[in-house]
Amino acid sequence: MNYTLNQLNIFYKIAQNQSITKAAEELHLTQPAVSIQLKNFQDQFSIPLTEVVGRKLYVTDFGKEIAAAAEQIIHQVQAINYKTHAFEGNIAGRLTISTVSTAKYVMPYFLTDFMDANPGVDLVMDVTNKAKVIRSLEQNAIDFAMVSVLPDHLKINRVELMQNKLFLVGGTSRSRPKSYSAARILREEPLILREQGSATRNAMETFLASKDIQNSKKLELTSNEALKQALVAGLGYSIMPLIGLKNELGNKDLEIIPMRGLPIITHWNLIWQKSKKLSPTAQAFLDYIEAQKNEIIRDRFDWFEKYN
């Protein structure tokens, strides 16, 4: 047998995703390239690693055993790389972060310079909704989480990063009578909400309840990008974070509709469990954040402070 580390990694990703297409996307390769490597890898075994049933790929029991072995080998290689960097006096290791979906517009700016300065660090960042972020934190599956609403059932440490502002927003392409107040818009125009478990949805529903506003015309979308495009298309209105709207507001595709009680202001927080023993890599990142956060906010988010 003469399989390569690259083939092991490709097969491991195929087994993880149960899909050649998804594995190719993760690896930033073309689907034909992944298929060729899978065939070359398979040719070295007399027992099938995968099978296709009804156009769907399945990993065989033998394939699962090989995938598990491949995972161990890949982790050992990573450990060797980390140790090499460590002996050279560099920060090296795995940094795992889970963020709520709207934080994807914020978190990368707090990572860029740290990652550039520490090439031995491997970053894994999961972008999902609040419920899944907190679950990852509870299960000790991550180093840090980034949220705007703190979990009240966990003992956590935190670093407050920057404000999160939520405004009433609509698309400029949607026509409405000029006499409509913001409250009337929320009562009579279609409202677009995020899915259950989203902190943005919770904030919007809490605000509507505080104003005793009810509306039966509701649409639900499961991503911030989808919601934003729905607003641009004129499907309705929503209360959503300013942070992801820079280009659409600048292009005048969206507009902020003033209303008393808005914006809702919370703060983005980098959080971790108090009981967690941070790895040297995670501690180095935390030290970097505490030292550089004010400069990052000033340099990268000056536009954000103009909206109040």
Rank of each mutant, 00 (worst) to 15 (best):
N118C: 07
G120E: 01
D122K: 06
L123P: 00
L123H: 02
V124L: 12
N129S: 05
N129L: 04
K130R: 10
A131R: 09
V133A: 12
Q139W: 01
N140P: 07
A141P: 08
M146K: 04
M146W: 08
V147H: 00
S148E: 13
P151N: 05
D152E: 14
K155F: 08
I156S: 02
N157C: 08
R158H: 08
R158C: 08
V159Y: 00
V159G: 09
L161F: 03
L161W: 02
K165S: 01
L166F: 12
T172F: 06
T172M: 03
R174K: 14
P177C: 03
P177S: 12
S179H: 06
Y180E: 05
A182H: 03
A183R: 10
A183L: 14
R184T: 13
I185R: 02
L186A: 04
L186Q: 05
R187Q: 13
E189T: 03
P190I: 06
L191A: 00
L191Q: 00
I192Q: 00
I192S: 01
L193D: 05
E195H: 06
S198K: 04
A199G: 07
R201H: 03
N202W: 09
M204C: 13
L208C: 06
D212Q: 13
N215D: 14
S216E: 13
K217V: 01
K217W: 03
L219Y: 13
L221F: 14
L221Y: 14
T222P: 08
N224I: 10
E225R: 12
A226L: 11
L227I: 09
L231F: 07
Y237I: 04
S238T: 00
P241L: 03
L245K: 01
K246Q: 10
K246R: 09
G250M: 10
N251V: 07
N251M: 12
K252Y: 07
